[in-house]
Write a protein that binds this DNA or RNA. Structure first.
Lengths: 139, 139
DNA sequence: ATTTGTGAAACTACCATGGTTACATAATGA
DNA sequence: TCATTATGTAACCATGGTAGTTTCACAAAT
């Protein structure tokens, strides 16, 4: 999770700011300053997570799948983060050592709790919050 | 932050279990099942963070720099995580777009808060907690 | 039917990481 | 003083993930 999260949030914020009009990957790529195909790949991921939907053909593009005040940063985080992306994979500790044998599951418990705390905090902010703050600061 | 965090915690837990006797990188590598040089690289990082110290020469090795009940997983996390390792770097958004211009700093605020929540949760567990739990489960 | 735009595959380039070897340096003890 | 032990560190390779790019098939609208 590095640039993909930032780009995903950027995309969703753009869609919200676009007020229901389908946004093409090329237009989005213009604001993010990257490649349309890259944006489409991200959009597919976001669509699978139920955050966006896309329409093909002329006048088509991407739309938010639900109101922006019901999409939190935690939703985006989960959409973008591959399973065990944060859960550290320990390279097979020695099973003959009692610590090596037990440390991994124990760590997973604690990291799981920490990640839940992370997501809870991210869940406090919605895409609507972001657009509102930006328009207020820019205004 | 992937395997390095897990390995670092593993190392510190070993040092605590070793009860004040210096542990060589070779011995540690045996339990972690990896290379001594790799362990030494990690130990240097942990020493810079003030969590361990090392003694050269015969009978030397690594020791905890302070009691295990005063080393939290948050300390390890900070020692292992390079600056801006989690902070997503957005690939230069288009400054002509009001959203592209503002999204980055706004996101950094929110992610900063989320990371503080993560560290707060990690801060609730100490290395001493881990060794205690392991010995209880293994016992 | 033409145009517009997504979906998806194939490919390259790049960087971080793990892993490994080798060697200089420091500390200990005989 | 000298051999031994162990860290510190540099150099190097292999691998995997990611961004970036090109290309094309397919779907929808006029």
């Amino acid at each position: 999770m590095n640039t993909r999260f930032a780009v995903a949030v950027h995309i969703l914020t753009l869609l919200e700011a676009n007020a229901g009009k389908p946004a093409t990957s090329e237009w989005i790529a213009g604001s993010v300053d990257t490649n349309p195909a890259l944006i489409r790949r991200q959009l597919v991921q976001l669509a699978k997570a139920g955050l966006t939907r896309s329409q093909m053909g002329p006048g088509g593009g991407a739309l938010l799948a639900r109101p922006a005040d019901r999409i939190t940063l935690a939703d985006v985080y989960r959409a973008v983060t591959a399973e065990d992306d944060i859960l550290p994979i320990h390279p097979s500790p020695n099973p003959r050592c009692p610590i090596g044998r037990n440390i991994q599951t124990l760590l997973e418990e604690r990291i799981g709790a920490a990640e839940r705390a992370l997501e809870a905090e991210l869940g406090r902010t919605t895409i609507a919050d972001l657009t509102e703050t930006i328009s207020r600061r820019a205004g």
